[in-house]
Design a protein around this nucleic acid. Structure first.
Length: 137
DNA sequence: GCCAACGTTGGC
DNA sequence: GCCAACGTTGGC
C-alpha cells in the first residue's frame, strides 16, 4: 500500500510536539478549511506526518503517524468536517526550519511553501526525503 | 453570479 | 505589530 506523507501545522503554545508526546495520541480536529480537510480525508492509517510548529519556531520538529483515519470531527455539530488521530514517532535529529525549506529552489512547488496558510499540507515523497536529509545535517 | 468588505491565518 | 494571501459573507 502506497503511503503518502503530510505536514500538519500547530502553534506550539496551543498544541505542540510536547503535547502530542504527553498525550501519546492526538486527535486532529477543528480544521475548517476545505483543502486541509480534503487532505485529511485522503490520509490512511500508517501515513507519515511532519509535525510543524507555526508562528513560534516555524520549523518541523518531529514525525508522527496516522493511527485513525476517516473520522468526522467531534467538534463539528454538522458532522461534515474530517478529522484524524495521530501518534508521535520520533523527534527529528534537528528541526528543519521553514527558512531552510524556502531556501531550497526545488521545494518551491510544495504546498507548505505555495500555500502558506494551509494547515494540513501534502508532502511528496521526494520532498519528504529532502527534508529528512536536512534534519540529519 | 459578481465583487467589495471583512475576518483569519501565519510569515516577517 | 504589520500585512499579504486566502476564505467567507452579503449586497446588488
Amino acid at each position: 500500500m502506497a503511503k503518502r506523507a503530510w505536514l500538519m501545522k500547530s502553534e506550539p503554545n496551543v498544541y505542540g510536539w510536547d503535547d502530542l508526546i504527553a498525550e501519546k495520541e492526538g486527535t486532529w480536529d477543528g480544521v475548517r478549511n476545505h483543502r486541509a480537510s480534503n487532505n485529511m480525508r485522503a490520509m490512511e492509517v500508517g501515513d507519515q506526518v511532519f509535525f510543524y510548529h507555526s508562528n513560534i519556531g516555524r520549523e518541523i520538529v518531529g514525525i508522527a503517524e496516522i493511527t485513525v483515519s476517516g473520522i468526522t470531527d467531534p467538534t463539528d455539530p454538522e458532522n461534515k468536517w474530517a478529522a484524524v488521530k495521530l501518534k508521535p514517532v520520533r523527534k527529528l535529529d534537528r528541526p528543519v526550519t521553514l527558512k531552510e525549506i524556502k531556501a531550497d529552489p526545488t521545494m518551491k512547488e510544495c504546498e507548505l511553501v505555495r500555500l502558506s496558510r494551509l494547515s494540513v499540507a501534502e508532502i511528496r515523497p521526494d520532498e519528504w526525503e529532502k527534508i529528512l536529509l536536512k534534519s540529519k545535517s
